[in-house]
């Protein structure tokens, strides 16, 4: 994967990891830190799990002892930590490629992005994984290609212009995080005394999506609407939009038992 070594560490026994790797076809090292001594030495053990869980009404459980904070470290070629990312919640996870895409700015493009065009704009959209599992976070990438000689308006908006934006059609259990765009460029424009912010060429926006529906949510077509207003050197066209549907399949949770929800009293 992009020449990056991937290892995952948990307190599971070698036997548990062997079965898990076999069930999921995992070939990268799943390291066994039974007893959590290495993770404790690294200062990653969450000794507040029990009290945190009490806040959420989760019953005490022996397997919640010696748990690390869930997260990841990105190391450079010299083994120095360049990024770290941690979550309070054990249920919300990034995909490996999503994490790398966010931390390194590398985006793995799947083989078949969905494409739609309306001159002078072409939009391609894809997810960093064609499948999701319950409570997984996937990165949606929306690539907007603007024909040469044109630009599209960006944030911050100006009176009477529509900035480039992404809207995701509501879907049961789908949590949509704010879209991120690269920095826009300010250009001088008659009628806008402090200029107009625009994108030109090819611009990629990213939207983190969390599939939080209960298992069995099934396959989806994620509805994506890209709104924009294109301008050439002389004038701006009317605001317009392009719609796409990005397919995503639910992956089976092979050999995994899910936490039983505990109702709060």
């Amino acid at each position: 994967m992009n020449g990056i070594a991937l290892v995952a560490i948990s307190y599971d026994s070698v036997e548990v990891l062997r079965n898990f790797a076999a069930a999921h076809g995992i070939t990268y090292p799943l390291l066994s830190d039974e007893g959590s001594l290495a993770m404790r030495g690294l200062g990653l053990i969450n000794d507040r799990v029990q009290e945190d869980h009490a806040v959420y009404g989760i019953q005490p459980n022996a397997r919640h002892v010696n748990l690390p904070y869930p997260g990841a470290f990105l190391l450079d070629r010299d083994g120095l930590v360049t990024h770290k990312r941690f979550y309070e919640s054990y249920r919300e996870r990034d995909t490996g490629t999503g994490l790398i895409a966010q931390t390194l700015g590398i985006i793995d493009e799947p083989s078949a992005p969905v494409v739609a065009a309306s001159s002078p704009v072409t939009v391609r959209a894809w997810l960093d994984s064609p499948t999701y599992v319950f409570f997984q976070r996937l990165m949606l990438t929306v690539e907007v290609s603007i024909d040469s000689g044109f630009c599209v308006c960006a944030d911050p908006p100006r009176d009477g212009v529509t900035p480039l934006s992404i809207a995701i059609e509501p879907l049961g259990g789908l949590e949509v995080n704010p879209a991120r765009w690269p920095a826009a460029r300010r250009v001088a424009r008659p009628g806008f005394h402090d200029g107009l912010w625009v994108h030109e060429g090819v611009v990629r926006g990213t939207v983190p999506l969390t599939f939080a529906a209960a298992p069995g949510g099934g396959d989806h077509l994620v509805g994506v609407t890209v709104r924009y207003q294109a301008c050439d050197g002389a004038s701006c066209l009317l605001p317009s939009s392009i719609q796409l549907r990005v397919p995503v399949r639910e992956a089976a949770l092979i050999g995994r038992s899910l936490p039983t929800p505990v109702s709060k009293t």
Binding site: S10, L17, R18, P29, L74
Partner: peptide
């Protein structure tokens, strides 16, 4: 690792960047 052999993280990286993920359990 899952095959039972000892893995040294930095040796395994062999000069590559690495992503080291900590998660609650495979079970």
């Amino acid at each position: 690792d899952q095959k039972g052999g000892l893995v040294d993280l930095h040796e395994y990286r062999a000069g590559r960047p690495a992503l080291v993920v900590f998660y609650r359990s495979a079970e």
